[in-house]
Design a protein around this nucleic acid. Sequence first.
DNA 1: TTGTTTGCGCGATAAATCGGCGTGCTGGTC
DNA 2: GACCAGCACGCCGATTTATCGCGCAAACAA
Lengths: 153, 153
Amino acid sequence: MPLDRFDRRIIAALQEDARMTVAQIAERVSLSATPVSRRLKKLEDDGVITGYSPRLDARKLGFPLDAYIMINLQAHSDEIIDRFEGAIQDNPYVIACHAVTGEMDYLLHVTARDMEHMSEITLKTLVRIPGVRDVKSILVLENVKTSPALPVE
Amino acid sequence: MPLDRFDRRIIAALQEDARMTVAQIAERVSLSATPVSRRLKKLEDDGVITGYSPRLDARKLGFPLDAYIMINLQAHSDEIIDRFEGAIQDNPYVIACHAVTGEMDYLLHVTARDMEHMSEITLKTLVRIPGVRDVKSILVLENVKTSPALPVE
DNA sequence: TTGTTTGCGCGATAAATCGGCGTGCTGGTC
DNA sequence: GACCAGCACGCCGATTTATCGCGCAAACAA
């Protein structure tokens, strides 16, 4: 069943503040609290909303640096891929990893405490994962736009 | 004032579920509800926590495709940069944009309804922004890891 | 028309939040 | 060693919030 206008407006409200109360959402979307509560539960049960996260200031948590790192593997056997992806899962400083098209196989988003730490993550962890052939780093200088939102309306 | 162990555990709890009630957080971090509520408010006031967002299934919202797009500008005058960044802010399909080091100036994260839509965003919007010289697209094939979390513990 | 389905609002109840108050620990001073 | 101030905790009562059952109205099919 597709999302109707009310569902989309509920999601839009949550994208501004996911800790907003049901009553506040209800007022914004011109509905009473009961249907909002029920729709919210349905959106969660259907997997449209998979959870809720705080937006954090990475600098204030001690991670002022972040980079995108592109990685190439020597081969694409199951063993190499599984070992690589396992190592990625275990590394807490890798906050995202995508398999991508193009000249590189993976694009990682990595966060670090400082340059030395970033260097350590790259040189002592990532390049040493068996099967890794090539690593290219792109340092983030400035966040021009970070919208945690998808277009819903 | 630095974050102590309790603050970090509160943030860790919120990273799992930011709509968790104060009482639930309190139980997890072995504190009563009152100090948790006060610490939470302080973390928000201090800007450590800047807001709360739902985690959404982009596919179920009609955006099954996403890509990283790297962009080079012809020049780096204020006028060109301001116009480019303004256009990025106005484009709802650009969910993130960073100024970066390396051979390209910007790295964008873009989401789209389908290939035709992605093509339209790239060819009809991004390459037509005045001052844009070069555009390289990297399509995301698979999300290996997407942790909305920073390491806090 | 009649029966069925779907989704709304209302009201009640259990839970959560918020503010005030008292207590215990710690560090500094005399 | 005694005392005081500052800080952060827990408890408690008042208000707000979430959720559930119920009845009602609109949309649709037979």
